[in-house]
Amino acid sequence: MYLAISRLQVMSGKENEFETAWKNREQETHGVKGFKKFNLFKGEVNKEFSLYIFHSEWNNESDFINWTKSNSFQLAHKNPTLEGNLYLGPPDFDGYVGLPDFEGFKVVI
């Protein structure tokens, strides 16, 4: 198993707008070789931002890398949201072979 994980800081007060945009986004992973599932977790909340972790689960790292080189990937990432004022910077990416510990987080989508 391979997990592609990104952390994103959403500005305080913009959480509902972000979650709505995320739920309504176009997903370009249906039928993609090796793709298993996708989750969005909401974590730490403070006065400045709410931390979200989104991850996709793949059969292996090669399947994920192949997807990142595909037209499906380009379509999925062409416009994450139309509202550019939701984030405190770009996502922070990590990839994991196996399952990391998400203690303290809850699945929101």
Rank of each mutant, 00 (worst) to 15 (best):
N59T: 15
Y52I: 00
P90D: 07
V107Q: 13
S6Y: 13
G34D: 01
A4N: 13
N66K: 14
N85M: 04
G34M: 04
K69Y: 13
S50E: 01
V107M: 09
H55A: 02
F54G: 00
Y2N: 02
D92Q: 12
N24R: 09
D101Y: 12
H77T: 15
I5G: 01
K36W: 13
V32C: 03
W22V: 00
Y96D: 00
L88Y: 09
N66E: 14
V107G: 05
K23H: 09
I53D: 00
W58E: 01
N79V: 08
F102C: 04
L51Y: 08
F41H: 11
G104C: 07
L82G: 14
Q27A: 05
L40P: 06
S56G: 04
K69H: 13
Y52V: 01
F54R: 04
N39W: 10
L75Q: 15
L51D: 06
K23G: 05
M11C: 11
P90E: 06
P90H: 05
P100G: 02
V32F: 00
D92W: 05
V45F: 12
R7E: 15
E17W: 06
D101R: 14
E83A: 12
G84V: 03
E48S: 10
Q9E: 10
E57N: 02
G84K: 11
Y2F: 15
K33H: 09
G98Y: 09
L3T: 03
V45T: 15
D63N: 12
L3S: 01
F64Y: 14
N24K: 11
F54A: 01
V10F: 08
E103H: 12
I109F: 13
G104D: 11
L99Q: 13
N46K: 14
G104T: 09
E103L: 09
P91L: 03
E15V: 12
E28R: 09
K78E: 09
